[in-house]
Design a protein around this nucleic acid. Structure first.
Lengths: 305, 305
DNA sequence: ATTTCATATTTGTCTAGGACAAACTCTTGA
DNA sequence: TCAAGAGTTTGTCCTAGACAAATATGAAAT
């Protein structure tokens, strides 16, 4: 019974922690080491791998690029500079008007200035409305914060404080809306193993503004229970959220399983960065990598009904 | 990238799915098979394990009993009947005056009647006030729901729906209070490995009603980040929450470590069912197994200041 | 009768390569 | 421009041994 968090004495992490932090399985971590010579964990007195924090961050960075479609063979051969360059390519993408604004938010996150964040939140919410706020500010901001963390620009504490504060604000905004009786009824949850739940809140916000009725189930529901919940709550649609940490092949597998277990008249939608890695379309499953497609799905549902 | 013959047979599951559904790691599943002769998966054309749905259900049941404190060696030797019997055992709780009322709430949870729960919530909140509501209704109710789940009286779905709904209601109630500027400033979080976060919300509610200023950091913060957060946010107190699922020895170890890493002028409080198993008092750490003690701690702080 | 310590058992996670099918890339031919 | 085939890359699964942390057991001491 090895302890789960072998208190990082020298600041190195054991393989289980690295799996949790990066979303790369233990098997993958070991096989990369064997094949590509990276990462290069040291060993503790017991012969077990100990990963340096720098390498963990690098693994997280590689994982992000992997999710964007790059291949391991290429990425693992690159050095820090080339990796950072690739990271910037997409990050600095279109110097969009909102870009400077996001940087402004990010600065507040870095300084853990919760009061300023709160002010910005209500200001932008009033200006844009909930739906546009979530799409233009909130979602990109979460991505940026994740990137900033993997680049070591902010710590776990800043990331947690940001998430917690944003969750509170978003829930406050949602509390004032009355979502009863709309259609379609959408069951919202994540699969076991997926911990990120801010995505669910964002989807809930969009659904509410579109007049649908979300049924928020919280994260980590086993497939069998999702099926039962959909039936008992008379859901028209089951919508799952996948973060980029969720392995696309696992996601596809689980979706296929769920699709066969679910009565065919209930639709199945899958959203989040985690579905971008699914290339082949799955029969009877609507993939919703971007929020925009969510509106298409809603429209299609209404037309069908 | 092994795929998993997704559903060739009517319902055998590959090991990865069983891991996801039961929460037992692949390693554990394999070593149980080796040691105890259970489970007994068949093999597909490819030599890979295929688990029968019945066995998966049984594994989930075993996992529940495991979390309740039973040991694998015993459980895996039992047959279906004995296992079911163990599931029922925990039954009779002491009949307290509020007992009938809690039973009434519980009935609503069983029927996933969210509207009735919402009505009850606001009714009781208005009658008792936030602080008494949390202590007399909310906290005991969470315990009951957990028990009901482990007795298999309710499913994961009902438990999730309840948690999610209660979290929303509690946050709504908290949103209307203005917690700025109070003392002491209390940093609220859980350690890595501890997922239950409703306890944090409850503590937040109590602190707010007492005029203190909670700083909610969300769950799963590593120790070094807690130290940094306490410093940067000028927290007077660091308060951690431990659910009963958290091993007491781990908790004690982590608390000792945190205590030495934290400047001595910052107090350290540890609350929740998980600290009840800590026998020895820890120097410089206030153990707060019940909410009542939280008020004592607050009073002591004010006196000292 | 309870606490404390030392010893024995139980139990989950780690290790090592080898193997293989699915996913992906690249070529070839219409 | 697309389709089919051949070749490469890549993640997950396999076996079986090892070991430390967690827990149980028994003996000695308060």
């Amino acid at each position: 019974m090895k302890s789960i968090h072998p208190l990082p004495d020298p600041g190195g992490l054991p393989i289980a922690s690295v799996e949790r932090e990066t979303g790369l399985s233990k098997d993958t971590l070991r096989v990369w080491e064997r094949r590509y010579g990276f990462p290069t964990p040291t060993r503790d007195a017991n012969g077990e791998r100990v990963y340096a924090p720098d390498q963990v961050r690098r693994l997280a960075q590689i994982k992000r690029l992997l999710d964007r479609g790059h291949r391991p063979g290429k990425l693992l051969a690159l050095d820090d500079a080339a990796l950072a360059a690739l990271d910037q390519v997409l990050g600095a993408s279109p110097a969009s008007p909102a870009d400077a604004q996001l940087e402004c938010w990010l600065e507040r996150v870095r300084n853990h200035d919760t009061e300023a964040l709160q002010r910005l939140f209500f200001q932008e919410l009033a200006r844009r409305g909930l739906s546009a706020f979530v799409q233009d500010i909130f979602a990109p901001l979460i991505v940026r914060v994740g990137e900033a963390w993997s680049r070591n620009e902010i710590g776990i504490f800043e990331e947690h404080l940001f998430s917690q504060h944003m969750e509170r604000l978003l829930r406050t905004a949602l509390a004032n809306m009355t979502p009863t009786g709309g259609t379609p009824r959408v069951l919202l949850t994540t699969l076991s193993g997926e911990e990120h739940h801010l995505g669910l809140l964002m989807v809930e916000a969009l659904l509410v503004t579109e007049g649908a009725e979300p049924i928020l189930l919280g994260p980590q529901t086993p497939i069998e229970e999702i099926v039962r919940a959909a039936q008992l709550k008379h859901a028209d649609v089951v919508c799952l959220s996948f973060s980029s940490a969720f392995a696309p092949t696992q996601a596809a597998k689980a979706l296929r399983e769920l699709r066969t277990a679910l009565p065919s008249q209930r639709q199945l939608w899958a959203g989040g960065a985690g579905v971008k890695g699914i290339r082949k379309p799955l029969e009877g499953v609507s993939l919703v990598p971007e929020f925009q497609e969510l509106f298409d799905c809603l429209a299609a549902w209404h037309q069908q009904a």
